[in-house]
């Protein structure tokens, strides 16, 4: 643990960008947890006398076409956006590592069937497949989560499979087998903890993409329903006003979205440095 902390500090010092990403992550998580209490206004409260006002001190991000405070809406939306992405990624992480581990551990037909399944998913343009899934399952936030989870599944299954098949004949696996442990026990107590680090890198690289996907789906009018605050739908609502010059409606939620994705991408690169044994000196 002490060695890990030292290495953590080393990576942070060497790459200040990663430190920035961690700080940004802290901010995003904080907003997601406490957003509704921090927001200065009610994100749903409309005010007919103050529509489409440019940013001022009272409304730092301006007001939208119904007079709602954009700043409050951007803050409150963090929870929904992050919630969708986290649930989707958690689902694909759980299903993907189970499938990938079995494929890599047992090989043979299990491997062939699971490999074929993930190849078939990958044969679709993924965003388009997500649209199809949402349309088939029904237009709701829950189904956005499922769709995002399904299109991300192959990435996790692949990483888990590759990492497991490398370790399938490792010394500790043979030792556990000699002790009489069953296959499922070996998989869950010996193999899975060992493939966690590369899987975590995949999670954080994937998180940004999951956020983008979910926001893209709600941008085209799926899942989140107005008047709920969500970054994608806020950009969609603001899009109408861009041509007449009311830029703040779309810019701020878009920027929040971008910042969140940027943060997770940087974090993924940083985590990779952290767990990559080649760079651990």
């Amino acid at each position: 643990m002490a060695r890990f902390l030292r290495h953590f500090r080393h990576v942070m010092a060497e790459n200040p960008v990663t430190a920035v990403a961690f700080a940004l992550l802290g901010l995003i998580v904080f907003l997601a947890l406490f957003g509704p209490w921090i927001a200065p206004y009610d994100p749903l409260a409309t005010e007919a006398t103050k529509t489409l006002r440019p940013p001022t001190w009272a409304h730092p991000f301006g007001t939208d076409h119904l007079g709602r405070d954009v700043f409050s809406r951007v803050i409150v939306a963090t929870r929904l956006d992050l919630g969708i992405a986290i649930s989707a990624v958690a689902l694909s992480f759980a299903a993907g590592s189970a499938l990938g581990c079995s494929a890599g551990f047992w090989g043979g037909w299990t491997d062939r069937i699971i490999g074929r399944l993930s190849d078939t998913i990958m044969a679709f343009p993924l965003f388009v497949l997500a649209m199809g899934i949402v349309s088939a399952l029904g237009n709701s936030i829950e189904n956005i989560v499922y769709a995002t989870a399904i299109i991300n599944l192959p990435f996790y299954a692949r990483v888990a499979r590759a990492e497991t098949s490398v370790r399938r004949n490792a010394g500790y696996v043979a030792a556990a087998r000699l002790c009489g442990a069953s296959d499922t026990r070996i998989l869950s107590t010996q193999v899975f903890p060992n493939i966690l680090p590369p899987m975590m890198v995949q999670v954080s690289l994937n998180m940004g993409w999951a956020i983008l996907n979910a926001a893209g789906l709600s941008f085209i009018g799926l899942g989140v329903r107005p008047p709920d605050a969500e970054w994608g739908i806020m950009v969609a609502e603001g899009a109408t006003y861009i041509v007449s010059g009311e830029w703040w409606l779309a810019l701020f939620p878009g920027a929040a979205l971008m910042l969140a994705v940027f943060c997770f991408n940087l974090l993924g690169d940083g985590l990779r440095d952290l767990v990559d044994p080649l760079r651990r000196t």
Binding site: G208, A215, G216, G232, V235, A239, V243, A250, L251, V261
Partner: peptide
């Protein structure tokens, strides 16, 4: 490029 939502880039260019 990987962080920018396409719809956001498009709106920005329009503006």
């Amino acid at each position: 490029g990987v962080s920018l939502p396409t719809f956001f880039t498009g709106l920005f260019l329009i503006y």
